[in-house]
């Protein structure tokens, strides 16, 4: 198992946001998290690379292991961890720099490459994110000049540049039009050959299209986690069925 979560509880101060979550995610698969707003799916996603650490007053119980290594064990370096676990957010957030510098940034600050090697790795990342052909002739133009869909793929390229093993995506296509969404979905399909991907989405059809397994969250609990085809044709839990058929939530 690439990711193994056992009895995870998460608190914002006194408020419990996640209750006793245990689940496993295989390498080179896409796992989708679905559930109504406030169900804890994004909170859970962020526990997978300790992004909640930056929120004051939060507390974690239980364990999250990636390749057997406990993220919350004393001595785990959050910075090293986040290099291994990349993240892409709902709203694309390129740095106010050039296209090239956005992708090169992580490589530079981590001292991973310079000169020709840096350029080669930027190119490889942009190709992996299916953006290279659209930007290769204007690498030094501002990233902000790109379209929304291109900016999101740039953020994916930036995340891929530091060669992570796991890619977390929090509603990566919710602000994009259908064409740009389709490109992101195709990208997810291609990227899973090299990465383990976890995606939060409000779009049920998107979860059905891109993921291998789907987990349904409700009130901070994981109700059901199973192969995507059976989750969307015959879920085991009534609650899951009511949610995905739009009877509540």
């Amino acid at each position: 198992m690439k990711i193994s979560v056992e009895h995870l509880n998460f608190f914002y101060g006194a408020k419990r946001a996640l209750t006793d979550i245990s689940m496993e995610m295989r390498a080179n698969t896409v796992t989708a998290f679905i559930g109504p707003s406030g169900c804890g799916k994004s909170t859970f996603l962020r526990t997978l690379n300790r992004m909640n650490d930056i929120i004051p007053g939060t507390r974690v119980e239980g364990s999250v292991r990636i390749d057997g290594q406990d993220l919350y064990a004393p001595g785990t370096d959050a910075v090293l961890l986040r290099r291994k676990v990349g993240m892409v957010f709902q709203k694309s957030n390129p740095f106010p720099k050039s296209i090239f510098e956005n992708v090169a940034y992580g490589l530079r600050i981590n001292g991973m490459a310079k000169g020709r090697e840096l350029a080669a790795q930027v190119e490889a990342s942009l190709k992996s994110a299916a953006l290279w052909d659209e930007v290769k002739d204007r690498l030094h133009e501002p990233a902000m000049a790109l379209s929304g869909g291109q900016q999101q793929r740039l953020c994916i390229a930036r995340a891929l540049a530091v060669r992570p093993e796991v890619l977390l995506m929090d509603e990566p296509a919710s602000a994009l039009d259908p064409m740009a969404t389709q490109r992101i979905e195709e990208l997810i399909y291609v990227l899973k050959k090299d990465y383990t991907i976890v995606i939060v989405t409000h779009n049920m059809q998107q979860a059905a299209r891109v993921s291998d397994t789907t987990a349904f969250f409700w009130l901070g609990k994981m109700v059901e986690h199973g192969p995507t085809p059976s989750m969307f044709t015959s879920p085991a839990e009534k609650l899951t069925e009511d949610y995905i058929t739009g009877r509540f939530g």
């Binding site: 049920m204 059809q205 059905a208 969307f232 044709t233 015959s234 879920p235 899951t240 069925e241 995905i244 058929t245």
Partner: peptide, 9 residues
Amino acid sequence: HQPMAVDLR
């Protein structure tokens, strides 16, 4: 409607 689960069936 792109129905799911019981509705799809």
